[in-house]
Design a protein around this nucleic acid. Structure first.
Lengths: 233, 233
DNA sequence: TAGTGGTCTAGACCACCCT
DNA sequence: GGGTGGTCTAGACCACTAC
């Protein structure tokens, strides 16, 4: 084993993952330290560190200074959801995209929205509602609040051609965000918009984004029945 | 600017992110190469590389050999969903966890399941159905298929105490997986299990995991109405 | 306090790919 | 062909924390 020579961090990564997944190293057990592994693999410690860092980020091992590295007991896996612009999402599905702005104007935010973005209820924010169509079938209804302090140009932007969604992606970068997914029964209003029956199960995504501490936008996306979100593990 | 001295990759990361989010570097524009930035910041190229790699992984810049680094035009953001064991998820919400195994036995897989995991319809697999409760209220219904070739010990495992979910997390590591989220109207059967009304909107998560190419398990999780999944951006 | 991981450096070689 | 990012090395110092 001391003669094993691996060329790069990916090979070391694969070998360490093999030892973990094949239970050569049991959950909870300590893993040899970086220096020893580097000697085993005939490489520099930095190379082992690179491989171990990736494995730790994936949740398979837990690392502590002085405490050393241990195989995770309850590996908390993380799924990754790619969030493209709605237009791209629809086009990638092979459909024709069209969008219709239903409403745009300054409004006072209700208490619930305020609590979510850390602003007092009644604060004036830009509200935009729009419908996205895939091959002329309603795809998603977008109900959005935009913070005019963070994105003043949005107030006078034209969202009839470029959707608010796309405009914000291009003009309002964010550093942090939260997403909440729920299933709800369509209200009469939502059913009419999405051309379905009241009570139909629809997937709702509420997304809030921040640039550092300042809220940028909060959007409620109500997808037409049958929509599926895909994620990778 | 040439005198700017940053101590570590996190500071460099923050400075580069500032230039990107404040549009000092416009979307689509090229970014100085690593060597120049290292000279600017008074550090080694490897340190700049570490910072830029993180930014590229987050989707803000696009890097190509020879082509150089450019600010992303349509930054595809990725949301991260932490997937704990159901018991832990319920306990973290401050509830008492209990679970009830409804069924366990070898069954032939239907064509749809087979297609998803790359096995012919009719293949014998272990099927387990269970209900998880939070403070004695139904929380999620779990309908699971387990590949006995990949996890032979599962066939004789006792899932009445430790749930199949938890047993698999501990005993059947995986390297890759897919998740699909949808909203559906509860069937009569599901409504009875989850103690709700037929037609209620429920969040359904279908998760399939693989160890390299071999499928491990496929599970359909039907959450009681009102359940929300949280994700971080 | 000593051992571990986290990080930086200066230099080097290489794979990729644009021109 | 040549410039760029991707990676490795050998050594060093430091922060954290278990002991």
């Amino acid at each position: 084993m001391s003669a094993m020579v691996l060329r790069n961090w990916q090979e070391i990564h694969a070998e360490l993952m093999r030892r973990i997944t094949e239970r050569e190293w049991q959950p909870g057990e300590p893993v040899p330290n970086e220096a020893d592994l580097a000697a085993q693999f005939g490489c520099a410690r930095a190379t082992v560190n690179r491989a171990m860092r990736e494995i730790a980020e994936a949740g398979f091992i837990v690392r502590k200074r002085k405490g050393g590295t241990h195989v995770a007991l309850n590996p908390v896996r993380r799924a990754i959801l790619s969030i493209p612009v709605t237009r791209i999402e629809i086009e990638n599905l092979g459909h024709q995209w069209r969008h219709e702005m239903l409403h745009k104007g300054m409004e006072k935010i209700p208490a619930l929205i305020g609590a979510a973005i850390g602003k007092p209820a009644g604060t004036l924010m830009l509200r935009v509602r729009a419908l996205h169509f895939a091959d002329e079938r309603p795809f998603v209804h977008e109900d959005r609040w935009i913070n005019p302090l963070a994105v003043p140009q949005a107030v006078n932007a034209d969202f009839s051609q470029t959707s608010a969604n796309e405009w914000l992606v291009r003009n309002a970068p964010f550093t942090r965000g939260e997403i909440e997914l729920t299933a709800v029964n369509a209200t009469q209003h939502e059913a009419r918009l999405l051309q379905t029956k009241p009570g139909a199960a629809i997937l709702v995504v509420v997304r809030t984004t921040f640039l550092d501490a300042e809220p940028i936008t909060r959007v409620r996306l109500a997808y037409a029945p049958g929509h599926a979100m895909q994620m990778m593990l």
